[in-house]
């Protein structure tokens, strides 16, 4: 049970940074346990992409593709991961804390009677008892969770561990799968924005609040996002007003994000908003109210009207980008 199994979810056949992050994390745990770090990849992923996992300490990758795995389905995916954990004698199973992990990790947990920690924030602080750190109350406190079961499942928060290269020779092996796990659920349509930087992947997020006054005033926000290669986001009142889509709402009841740099522009910083952004490495705030709670969470602040400050700030960033 010293092996670690890492579910390496792909996005249109590619691995994102968060997957290399869990490969780094899982192989570090495997080294501590004295076992192997083994990945499982479901759906079509090219050989070169699979082998790239070796850079981060993965020594074997199990693959399964075909009809069962063409589109994401809970039942065959969870069954294949549990099967791989049994085959490889994996005591710890790692996911990236994504929507996919929310769908299947709990099923794998019940199949394997494995206690689960969702959105872990770092390595186990102790292997016996197996103790994993995570945030609770959306970052208002940190907790240590002891997983008492023989098997353990950890979903790692994005951008909480980083990438650690540890090159390993990697072999690719097919996982034999059964067809009896097919699902009666059908995907009848897929709507996906292409070419847009997704909030959960973004290293930089430019987020606007009520201080922008109206949906018509979003252009400088979009501009800043474009200059920096950032994703755009908003506070809850903005999405409730319909100024921006709900998918852009970050905060306790919207998306929880952890970029390297978060711009809170015209956002006062209600406790629920801060709960969704407090894991950001650096927060910049612009607000007219010098006493706004956002300045307690921010690293850098400007007191001023975002509509006046932002165009000048955009010019300054443009100049910086031109020179660097």
């Amino acid at each position: 049970m010293n092996n670690v199994l890492i579910y390496t979810e792909n996005f249109d056949g590619k691995f994102k940074k968060s997957i290399y992050e869990i490969a780094s994390y899982g192989s570090e745990i495997a080294r501590q346990l004295g076992g192997q770090a083994i990945a499982i990849s479901l759906g079509d992923v090219a050989e070169g992409e699979l082998k790239s996992l070796g850079t981060f300490g993965i020594s074997k990758v199990l693959t399964a593709s075909g009809d069962l795995f063409d589109t994401f389905q809970n039942l065959p995916y969870a069954a294949a991961i549990a099967q791989a954990a049994n085959q490889e004698n994996a005591g710890v199973i790692i996911f990236s804390a994504s929507n996919i992990a929310k769908a299947i990790a709990p099923r794998v947990s019940v199949k394997l009677k494995a206690g689960m920690v969702f959105a872990a924030t770092g390595l186990p602080s102790n292997l016996n008892p197996f103790t994993v750190p995570k945030k609770v109350f959306h970052g208002k406190a940190f907790a240590d969770v002891v997983v008492g079961s023989e098997r353990k499942i950890i979903s790692l928060s994005q951008n909480s561990f980083g990438l650690r290269e540890h090159p390993a020779d990697i072999v690719i092996e097919a996982l034999p799968t059964e067809t009896s796990t097919a699902s009666a659920i059908r995907v009848i349509d897929t709507q996906k924005a292409s070419g847009k930087i997704l909030l959960n992947d973004a290293e930089i997020i430019v987020s606007g609040g009520r201080g922008l006054k109206s949906a018509d005033n979003w252009q400088p926000i979009e501009e800043l996002a474009e200059i920096l290669g950032a994703a755009t986001a908003c506070s809850r009142p903005v999405s409730d007003e319909g100024w921006r889509p709900h998918s852009e709402h970050v905060g306790q009841t919207g998306k929880i994000v952890a970029p390297n740099l978060y711009f809170a522009l015209g956002i006062s910083g209600a406790i629920q908003h801060l709960a969704g952004v407090s894991s950001s490495k650096v927060i910049v705030a612009i607000n007219t109210d010098k006493d706004a709670p956002i300045f307690e969470a921010a690293d850098y602040g400007i007191v001023g009207d975002v509509q006046k400050v932002l165009p000048q700030l955009n010019d300054a960033f443009r100049k910086f980008k031109a020179e660097n």
Partner: peptide
């Protein structure tokens, strides 16, 4: 299968510059 055993408050943040 799991138990919360210990809590710590978030680290106080340095003052906003």
């Amino acid at each position: 299968l799991t138990e919360f055993v210990h809590y710590t408050p978030p680290q106080p943040k340095a003052a906003c510059k």
